[in-house]
Write a protein that binds this DNA or RNA. Structure first.
Lengths: 334, 334
DNA sequence: TTGTACGCGTTATCAT
DNA sequence: ATGATAACGCGTACAA
């Protein structure tokens, strides 16, 4: 147990060379005789030597570790609800591993800008990738002001001071609206809290498309209290009790869409026949739910790659532009 | 950008004390005069000082970082399918944050025992929590032999040399079987690959319960090729074409259950009336799927806490016993 | 091509 | 209660 790990010094001794030579051999430095290198590598392998990464980080500029923060509000107390955020996490994880960056998965205990900054000045991580904007716009701006490298998955407006990657939310909303207008839908329901930048943009896109309709229509809004499945279900059931049923619904996530469909079901309403619904994210479950969901697709693999690419650019001070990934309407059975 | 971060030396100078005193003040050491401590903390706060964690780790025994490895086989190429693994991840994340341990989320690039060991001897992490056993039983045993601290979410047999935490898989299977026998089910289908220890145990439990039936029955098996939704759907559709429909199904996960129900649906079969189905995990979606799934619940919050607790025990050389979390049958509409 | 000497920022030991 | 000094393991000038 208390076995002392072997150090670079030990390897040097065993290979009859000096420590810097070992360092060079392991680091792939050109100026080292092939035969010497081989000898060193052999000794290292034989003794299971591994470079002490803390000592290394102590000397080097970057930690090559990036903290990834899940959207706080997508978590329920001890219960995760939306698989999308995890598909996104998987995308980021893969992209980071390609660049040989470590991923520190941070708990939502970090709340303010200072606790985040400490992680950087303590040289634990080089910066942050936030998977979700939530209501943290102000904190993100503060972090940028404090020179903390960050990239955020989310929406972007003129006021956004930090680099974002996200779907083209306005377009996503527009595509949904277009579909509704094509089918002459008149009583449209937008589900989502427009305090979130992304959702505000989607609603704007939706409105833009609806405004091309040459007939009268109404647009109302349903804001779930939190992000849980049952909250959405109940809110929708309540709405159906008190108001005329909408004939078109645009939900901010597939998960929310599923909850809403359940409520519509129990109210005796059928997809396509009675209502049209467009979800968002195209999570794995969306195409297997019954009914199969019409939704807006986001490629989480590409998203991860882009988030990491932008982060690296931020780290190197080339203030990269925010950007969006392709955003497509996938028509299925709603 | 190239702003040099403030060091402990700097703080010492600014507070008119020596470096060790600063270290003691920050570390909560008792032997430091309250007034001195206050002064030091004030200076540190004022200048936004944060301890360099790499220098700290270079001196200390533990890195206080734990690598968490997701089950390789639960990932599809760029597509996550089963939310359960992420509920588990959330549980572990929370448990680790309570103990102030950092979570390094490792990509599935690490394949053999040596690459894992390197992470420990390189002092990146103190050890591993594996979320899923997959077919890595041999590697886990090898890691234990090499004194790498690990804990595994999964099943346990006499042959298991490493510490596991998991649901009581035998009991889970038994509960499902009991339900089937109570309803006189005769044509039982087990869905899952029994090469996985957990699933083998569940099948054994199922068989045990079935053996109490005082009537003849058949038990067959369906092994999905991979863990994707569509693979299960298609395998089930195929089975329904070629064989008589089962009147009872025990699926290894709720996700698999959903795929199978879709296939049964399209074949005109109805839950309860035509078949009975028990899933596994009780993921958030299970109670909102249509039909609402009967399933075996696992508390992922508790699971996370237990995994971390056991890991700490392993780290401190008190070879802890493997253990199981409460395992209950949740009866809903299948 | 290789070796010597030093510093990275912290904690631990020992002395005062 | 505090300070001087060493040591953790590595990379990098600079010298050879």
């Amino acid at each position: 147990m208390s076995k002392k790990p072997i150090t670079m010094d030990d390897v040097a001794r065993l290979a009859n060379v000096s420590k810097p030579t070992v360092s060079r051999a392991l680091g792939g430095h050109p100026n080292v005789k092939p035969k010497t290198r081989e000898k060193i590598l052999a000794v290292a392998r034989e003794h299971g030597y591994a470079v002490n990464r803390n000592a290394k980080k102590l000397r080097e500029k970057y930690t090559n570790t990036i903290a990834v923060i899940l959207d706080f509000s997508s978590h329920r107390r001890h219960r995760i609800t939306d698989p999308f955020i995890f598909e996104l996490l998987a995308g980021v994880s893969e992209a980071l591993s390609i660049r040989k960056q470590d991923l520190l998965l941070s708990p939502p205990t970090l709340s303010d800008a200072n606790s985040h900054r400490e992680l950087v000045s303590g040289r634990v991580v080089d910066g942050f990738i936030f998977l979700g904007q939530g209501a943290n716009d102000a904190m993100f701006n503060e972090l940028v002001k404090k020179d903390v490298p960050i990239v955020v998955w989310g929406g972007n407006t003129q006021a956004t001071k930090y680099c974002t990657v996200g779907s083209d939310n306005f377009l996503g909303g527009f595509l949904a609206g277009e579909r509704f207008v094509q089918h002459s839908k008149k009583n449209i329901l937008f589900v989502g809290n427009t305090e979130h930048i992304e959702l505000r943009l989607r609603r704007e896109g939706l409105e833009k498309a609806l405004s091309t309709a040459d007939y009268p229509y109404t647009l109302s809004e349903l804001q779930g209290e939190d992000f849980s499945f049952s909250a959405h279900y109940e809110a929708m059931a309540q709405l159906l009790k008190n108001s005329p049923a909408p004939d078109a619904i645009f939900a901010y996530s597939d998960t929310a869409a599923m909850a809403i469909i359940n409520a519509l079901n129990e109210h005796g309403l059928e997809p396509i026949k009675d209502y049209m619904l467009v979800g968002y994210n195209d999570i794995a479950q969306a195409s297997h739910f019954s009914p199969r969901l019409t939704t807006i697709r986001q490629d989480t693999f590409l998203a991860g790659a882009l988030l990491v690419e932008k982060f690296m650019a931020v780290l190197n001070d080339n203030s990269p532009m925010s950007s969006t990934i392709p955003t497509d309407l996938i028509v299925r059975n709603t």
